[in-house]
């Protein structure tokens, strides 16, 4: 989503993005001329008249589970977004009985919050797991 019109979206997709991704952009490219939606999400820069780089994870109930907003010169890391969605999906499927510690990736161990885990996280989770 950007403040560009759907016509500009089409030109960008057809003339540039389709050369990066076969078949073009697979998801809808939304137009927010005037920034009304961006304002509600806190990403619209009124002075510049454009939206900052924002990314919102919205669950199947329409609840915002996470977001990230960056100023224009730095791009996102899509793999991190996917990792977060996978983590939120796991938590949802476990009905909140499991939590994903820092550095969690699919296949890595989760934590089961409860009285017996209090003060014992150090036994199962090591600091190098935060970034490996």
């Amino acid at each position: 989503m950007s403040v560009d019109s759907v016509f500009v979206h089409k030109m960008w997709n057809d003339h540039e993005l389709s050369k990066m991704v076969e078949g073009g952009v697979p998801f809808p490219m939304l137009s927010d001329g005037g920034g009304k939606v961006g304002t509600a999400y806190g990403v619209y820069d009124e002075q510049a008249g454009v939206e900052n780089r924002g990314r919102f994870i919205i669950d199947p109930d329409g609840i915002i589970q996470g977001y990230e907003v960056l100023t224009p010169p730095v791009g996102r890391h899509v793999a991190e977004t996917l990792r977060q969605i996978q983590a939120f999906q796991l938590v949802r499927e476990s009905k909140g009985s499991e939590a994903t510690p820092s550095g969690w990736k699919p296949g890595k161990m989760t934590l089961k919050p409860g009285p017996e885990l209090v003060g014992k996280v150090w036994e199962v989770w090591k600091t190098d797991m935060a970034s490996d």
Binding site: M1, M11, P28, Y41, D61
Partner: peptide
Amino acid sequence: SVKLSDQLGKWVALCCYPGDFTFV
């Protein structure tokens, strides 16, 4: 056109960016 509430039941990643033909 896309209405957010039509996507209920699915996970949605809503992304925004400064403009088409920007570099990053």
